[in-house]
Amino acid sequence: MSGMKKVVAPEYNLSDKIKTHAYAIGTAMEESVYPHTATVLYPREKKKMPDNFRGYILFDPDKCISCFNCSFVCPANAIRMKEAPNNRYYPTIDYGKCIFCHFCIDSCSGGALRTTKIHDVAYKDVDEMFTSTEEMIEPPEIIREDKKSVEYVIDETDLHLKRKKERDGLFVEAVPPVEIPMVSQCVDRGSCLACKICERVCESGAASSVVEEATMTVKMAIDAEKCTGCGLCVKECSMQILRLVRVRK
């Protein structure tokens, strides 16, 4: 077959052997004099992580639309929602399960979740690893012993370690996702049960219903202005007659 290269392992005669012995010993000697040390002296110094590094997750309740997406997408089921005093559901993270895939952040259309560069933490107890919503809002404090930051620099010749006197920041500004406004809409009104599940599941108060006892009718409505496009009603609708649609500008 074309594009195949046959690799033949070398046959060593005595002189080759001596040569390769010499190379091996020579390399060791060379390194003992001019070493290419590549060690980051953690915890004395810390390696600089890129801004997109996947570490601990912070949460901003103001931006949260309680869409449950983070919880639904979490492959490890580490994120579970908890009801807050204001009657909305906010995420909590169990770091004993979290795999730092950040699918949650990539699913958070409101941009309420954001990453940090925290990743070196030791817990005393497995139960402590559960992090409630209250604890996810403010940046946490971790024990840091580093005074310097180290950056890996790969130039065309080799890997170098660039040390800087200042400490690397742990917190990065959140990059908000692009806005793609969606609203929920009923596509088959005749099949509506008026079961009000959409209203009950809606966190933004967009879906509403009014029962008129006199005429025995229920007025259902989804207020597009209020709708955050979270899609919960679409998912929950027992007749599956709601759809998310793009808002026309």
């Binding site: 005093p85 992090t131 809002i137 971790i142």
Partner: peptide, 15 residues
Amino acid sequence: ITTIKFKKVELPSGG
């Protein structure tokens, strides 16, 4: 000790 300390923030109430 656990090496991380979280600050607890009151969640918005009301509604």
